[in-house]
């Protein structure tokens, strides 16, 4: 019996001689192949290409030739790079904590609101759907002097002197950051709300019976249990602020990154090096540096915030 069955199987094609496990593997890789090829061609190959370009002096008009670490030496000696570097980190260390704090407070209280809950949540989410260009235009008007600018109107009404905002080298960066924070709030609130909802109600009830105050519940139960959500949002929003570009580019379109480079982030510098000066090799080196910064910061954050 078994000999006959064996012979029959052996006479079939290669496919019929394979075990069920082998067939499953082939099917799985068959399906995975499409996104894999796409990723390799669209993502990974250009990434490696950027690494290669960063050690060449390619400028579109001239073929690329190997220059070693020349681009990196030039970058680290460039005072503009260090200013941009400082700006980028200002966006990060101001933007991440401020946006997380505001979105947590909003989510924490919105979670308790039953009246028009979905509508309010939708309102908060709306800026996230808006294009950065439109948003930047509106905020640019907000920052205008009296009588156009709403903010200066209010300040004037309160008897406070008018502020230059986007025209001042010290105020411009926070003024650009504000709409960026505002735009990201909706997303962060939704994620925080989901995190809050995932905490079982009985945890709070047990805490109430044990006599914890609202503050103690927040400190000892809510925030520790929100940690996975918090880690995700910190990493996600840090990457967002390190890569800030469209908010800056659009709010000051006649002098992007100005005044006097005081709002210019790294990505904008890369953009200008590549597509205004056409120094592709130099821009690629900047990209590699940005990549390293993102990688290091993300890894450090994950390390610090993992189980402690």
């Amino acid at each position: 019996m078994s000999a006959v069955a064996h012979r029959e199987a052996a006479t079939g094609g290669l496919w019929s001689r394979m075990s069920l496990g082998q067939k499953q593997v082939i099917w799985a890789w068959g399906f995975l192949a499409v996104p894999l090829v796409f990723y390799a061609v669209i993502r990974f190959w250009p990434t490696f290409q950027a690494f290669y370009l960063s050690v060449t002096d390619w400028t579109i008009t001239r073929p690329a030739s190997y220059v070693g670490l020349e681009n990196y030496k030039r970058l680290f000696a460039d005072p503009l790079f260090w200013e941009v570097f400082r700006n980028t980190f200002m966006y990060l260390i101001l933007g991440t904590p401020i946006s997380l704090l505001i979105s947590f407070v909003v989510a924490y209280y919105l979670d308790r609101v039953r009246f028009m809950h979905s509508f309010i949540r939708a309102l908060y989410f709306l800026p996230f759907l808006t294009t950065a260009a439109a948003m930047a235009w509106v905020w640019r008007w907000f920052y205008q002097p009296v009588p156009i600018g709403v903010i200066n109107d209010i300040l004037a009404g309160l008897g406070i002197p008018q502020q230059p905002f986007l025209r001042s080298t010290s105020q411009a960066l926070p003024a650009v950051l504000a709409p960026a924070v505002w735009a990201g709030l909706g997303f962060q609130i939704i994620i925080f709300l989901a995190g809050l909802r995932a905490i079982p109600v009985t945890y709070y009830e047990a805490a109430r019976i044990d006599g914890l105050s609202e503050g103690a519940i927040l400190r000892k139960i809510t925030i520790p249990l929100l940690k996975p959500t918090l880690v995700f949002l910190v990493v996600f929003s840090s990457i967002g602020f390190l890569r800030i570009f469209d908010q800056v580019y659009n709010i000051n379109s006649n002098d992007p990154g100005g005044p006097l480079n005081s709002t210019k982030p790294l990505v904008l510098m890369i953009y200008q090096t590549a597509f205004s000066s056409y120094e592709m090799g130099y821009a690629a080196a900047q990209t590699v540096v940005l990549f390293m910064i993102l990688l290091v910061i993300s890894l450090v954050q994950l390390r610090l915030m993992r189980d402690r």
């Binding site: 047990a206 109430r208 006599g211 139960i221």
Partner: peptide, 17 residues
Amino acid sequence: QPKDRNIAMVFQNYAIY
């Protein structure tokens, strides 16, 4: 308040942190 009633409660899903 629950805390002032001097009672203790055990929940179905344990509610341990």
